[in-house]
Amino acid sequence: MKIIDLTHTISEDMPVYPGTEPPKLQTANTYEKDGFKETLLTMFSHTGTHMDPPAHIYAGRTTLDEFPITQFVGKGLVIDCTDLNEGQLITMDYINHVRDKADVAEFIIFYMGWDKHWGTDAYFGDYPYIDEEVTKYIIESNKKGVGLDVIGIDPISDGNLSIHHKLFAENEIVVIENLANLGQVGNEIFTFCALPLKYLSSDGSPIRAIAILEN
């Protein structure tokens, strides 16, 4: 068995969505004064590698703490889209190329190689994004989730979050953003685990995402 960490480290100088304050990691207790170390974490619920539920967009829809734990573990498939240039669309050609695997996968994860820009201004550029047909496929095939190694499933220029709205309107699905190290996973079905914090009425949460590959 091989386990790959797909999660960016949370730090005070990490990239955050434009307009969002970066996290704060404040030392609350020290070895010298208190005999132990404790850190006060202050961050938005969509910080770093994180997960969005339907309640992120729609009032009254499912929050992360309302999902069964089975929502966060399942068969994943990484789809390589690294040949795309800035602002280009991920079309059904990428799905159809691996359709037999895509149909059985519970999580579709798009690999743009964008994590190489993590920590730079380029990370907020015109990354590739999914088109309407791919969005429709994800909805109609009842996937547990869709993931990407960019800051959002919508293009950075779309303040209306159109793709979020379509995915979350009626489906019980999660969106995972800011994944890392997808190039290490390969193109076979693997076990994907993405566990959010369980806090009340959670509209989103940082996660620890991993890929479990069988030998």
Rank of each mutant, 00 (worst) to 15 (best):
P155S: 01
T20Q: 12
S202I: 06
I212A: 05
G159V: 00
P22L: 06
H164I: 07
Y58M: 09
T70N: 11
T49F: 00
E133T: 05
L200H: 08
L200W: 05
H97M: 10
I10A: 10
F124N: 06
L64T: 03
I138G: 01
D115Q: 04
E214Q: 12
L77K: 06
L161Y: 13
V185C: 12
H50L: 02
S157A: 09
L64A: 02
L84H: 09
V175N: 12
K143D: 07
G35L: 14
A59R: 10
D34Y: 01
I173G: 10
A102I: 04
D121M: 08
P196N: 09
V146C: 13
P15T: 08
E177F: 03
I151K: 00
H165L: 07
T42V: 13
G87K: 10
K75A: 12
T135M: 11
V150I: 11
Y199C: 08
F44G: 15
D203G: 04
N160D: 15
F67N: 06
T47L: 00
D203W: 06
I95M: 10
D115P: 00
I108D: 06
A105Y: 01
A211I: 11
E12K: 03
I163Q: 10
I10W: 00
I3Q: 15
E32C: 00
D158A: 03
A105G: 09
W114Y: 14
N181S: 15
P68D: 05
L77S: 09
T191V: 15
P53Q: 03
P22D: 04
L197R: 10
G35V: 14
S141C: 03
I3C: 09
Q71T: 04
E172F: 04
E133A: 12
V185P: 11
K143W: 04
R208K: 14
